[in-house]
Simulated assay, not measured.
Amino acid sequence: MDVDLKNNMNGIRLGEQIRELDSLGFIIFTTTHLEMSYLAFKYKVEAMDYVIKEDYDFKQRIESCLLKAYNTYYKGNHKEGYISIKEDTRIINIKLCDILFIETTGVAHRIRVHEENRQFEFYGNLKDIQKKLTSNFYRCHKSYIVNKDKIEEIDIKNNKIIMVNGEECYVSFRYKGGLLS
């Protein structure tokens, strides 16, 4: 954001208002007015950087900031989370990023978790498990929840999802639209 917006409000004040709405947003100021940099501190904007337009490395600094912001945002949204499952006399901690999909079994209230190299079962229901999962998991069928990050291919004609390890699960007509969007 430029400090001089050629308006009755400067970029620093606008940054202050943005900060009130988004405490975690990334703000990079660009300007030819080095003397105004102290205002970013005065108004507690917490800018990521204050880049002078005439600097020889202007483009490189902006790119560096954008890359850092992207990586910070991406990692924040894909934290290595866990869910804990109680099974008889043990508690199983499952790393969310290891799950390919979760399905119901033929036995009432029995759930099977598929990871790339293992599967295990426990008593529970998909509705309760779904509440513990992050946004990259999608209920694609009444019997399946799939990790969208682990999908290799979607066979639209046959209503199948092929995972990165070759395993398949189904997607119902009802949920297919949400998965494809």
Rank of each mutant, 00 (worst) to 15 (best):
M1E: 05
D2L: 03
L5F: 06
K6Y: 06
N8P: 01
N8Y: 12
M9Q: 11
M9Y: 10
M9V: 14
N10A: 02
G11N: 00
I12L: 01
R13Y: 08
L14K: 01
G15D: 01
G15N: 02
E16L: 07
E20S: 11
E20Q: 13
L21V: 04
S23C: 09
S23G: 15
I28A: 02
I28C: 09
T32K: 12
M36P: 00
S37R: 12
L39Y: 11
L39K: 15
A40Q: 03
A40T: 07
A40W: 00
K42S: 11
K42E: 15
Y43W: 12
K44C: 08
K44T: 10
E46V: 01
E46C: 07
E46S: 10
A47K: 03
A47F: 00
M48L: 14
M48P: 03
M48K: 07
Y50W: 07
V51R: 04
V51Y: 02
V51H: 06
I52E: 03
K53F: 06
E54N: 13
D55R: 12
D57T: 10
F58T: 08
K59V: 13
Q60V: 10
S64W: 02
S64Q: 10
C65R: 09
L66S: 10
L67W: 03
A69Q: 01
Y70E: 14
T72Q: 12
T72M: 09
T72D: 14
Y73R: 14
Y74D: 14
K75A: 15
G76F: 01
N77A: 03
H78G: 08
H78V: 00
H78W: 04
K79L: 15
G81L: 08
G81Y: 04
I83F: 03
I85Q: 03
I85R: 04
I85P: 01
R90G: 00
R90T: 14
I92H: 11
K95S: 12
L96P: 02
C97T: 08
D98M: 02
I99K: 04
L100E: 01
F101M: 04
E103W: 04
E103I: 00
E103Q: 13
T104W: 01
T104L: 06
T104H: 00
T105E: 07
T105P: 10
G106C: 04
V107S: 05
V107H: 05
H109Q: 11
H109C: 05
H109S: 12
R110G: 03
R110S: 11
I111N: 03
I111P: 02
R112W: 02
E116T: 10
N117A: 05
E121R: 09
F122W: 05
G124I: 00
N125P: 06
D128T: 13
I129L: 10
Q130W: 01
K132L: 14
L133Q: 06
T134A: 08
T134C: 05
S135F: 10
S135K: 14
N136Y: 13
F137E: 02
F137I: 11
R139N: 12
K142D: 11
Y144P: 04
I145F: 03
N147F: 01
K150M: 14
E152N: 15
E153K: 13
E153V: 00
I154E: 05
I154C: 12
I154V: 15
I156P: 00
N158Q: 14
N158R: 13
N159Y: 15
K160I: 04
K160H: 07
I162S: 06
M163I: 07
G166A: 05
E167V: 04
C169R: 02
Y170E: 15
V171P: 06
Y175K: 15
L179Q: 07
L179S: 05
L180F: 08
L180V: 05
